[in-house]
């Protein structure tokens, strides 16, 4: 455990890592989205990054690939941190981008993944209950996507103007 966490992850994961960078103590792995569960399982069991701090998403509209799902991990034993990014593009057929859920590894990922689905429209395979979590069921679209119009409102209730 004396090697830096990035070094250990590189040795263990090999080809699934697309790139890495390290800046002022923040270590980042960019990995293949198709292999995310296997990568996370190895990081959790073999590298010791046993705590999922955060799971979120970024929309880089106009860039290929468009989305990046970001995982922040921490080792409760050593206090090391690691950021894992999984780039994800929109499928050609216009359906929602998708990757595997990490709920089998961390139950706490459940609500994070629902939030990412709600606000960015990224589906998670094998998620036990992938519903919207912040917006209401009637809401159409995913509001934190950069192409969601800023002015669009989807009200549930409005006053009768003749009231």
């Amino acid at each position: 455990m004396s090697l830096a966490v990035l070094q250990r992850a590189k040795e263990l994961l090999g080809d699934t890592i697309k790139s890495t960078h390290s800046y002022r103590g923040d270590d980042t792995l960019v990995v293949d989205a198709a292999a995310i569960v296997e990568v996370m399982r190895l990081l959790k069991d073999e590298v010791g990054m046993d705590f999922l701090v955060d799971l979120t998403c970024v929309d880089y509209l106009g860039r290929e690939p468009r989305f990046e799902v970001v995982y922040h991990l921490r080792s409760m034993k050593t206090g090391e941190r690691l950021r894992v990014k999984a780039p994800l593009d929109e499928p050609e057929d216009g359906s929602n981008p998708a990757l595997d859920s990490v709920v089998p590894l961390w139950a706490g990922a459940n609500w994070f993944e629902r939030e990412v689905w709600d606000l960015y429209g990224i589906r998670f395979h094998n998620h036990p209950d992938l519903r919207r979590i912040l917006m209401y069921e009637e809401f159409v679209g995913h509001p934190l996507r950069k192409d969601y119009p800023k002015e669009r409102r989807q009200p549930l209730v409005r006053r009768d103007p003749n009231e």
Partner: peptide, 15 residues
Amino acid sequence: YQNYSTMPGADQCIP
């Protein structure tokens, strides 16, 4: 707040 989630004033739904 000028965004998708916030009602622009409570008078949108009650007097």
